[in-house]
Amino acid sequence: MILDVLDWFTRSEQWTGSGGIPVRFGEHVLYSVLALVVSALIAVPVGLVTGHTGRGGFAAITVANVGRALPTIGVLTLVVLGMGLGLFPVEVALVALAVPPILVNTYEGVRGVDPLLRDAAQGMGMRGAQVLLRLELPLALPLILLGMRTAAIQVVSTATIAAYVGIGGLGRFIVDGQSRREIEMILGGSLLVVLLALVVTGLFALLRRLVVARGLRARPAATG
């Protein structure tokens, strides 16, 4: 079976044309990045503001919990029935999937900032928005990034269902492999998804190194 998969990967037709691995991989990345960017644009500001003011926190968490409980297939089907096949239903379903972890982690990250630090910031003369952007956001960043990483991995793995509503991505290999009874194609497609998830994990580790303050990175490692 491993040889079959290797054979599948090395066949030349896999690497060219509109149904080839590079194109499908690119489509998958595109769908995932789009969903993630939209989700972050929704979830991070809402999480920051609710976490900072303490108002609407319960509502935000409730929305996130409902979002977590929504079956992705159901959301996808509803939007397809309403608006037809295409990229839009897939993106709605993926955003519904990605918003909850980012929102909850952003909110929790801001809420978790030590009140003493907040007092100190105010004592130094910082105003509300400054406290949020210069104290709470940097301190919450590790948790926000963790939420984004979780969301990204879920999105990458779930974007495979895009193939069910007639568009591309790596799910094509899985769905087409099933209908053609070609196990090596399903395996090949799945391996590519896992590869992408590993790349995502690596990218977030790198991002963390780049944007999280050095003091925050060192502390947990020293105590844990």
């Binding site: 793995s157 495979t160 799910g171 099933q178 399903i186």
Partner: peptide, 15 residues
């Protein structure tokens, strides 16, 4: 366990 988590469920079911 994180690698397992990244496996697409659809693929696992089919496999």
């Amino acid at each position: 366990v994180n690698v397992l988590y990244a496996l697409p469920s659809l693929a696992l079911f089919f496999l």
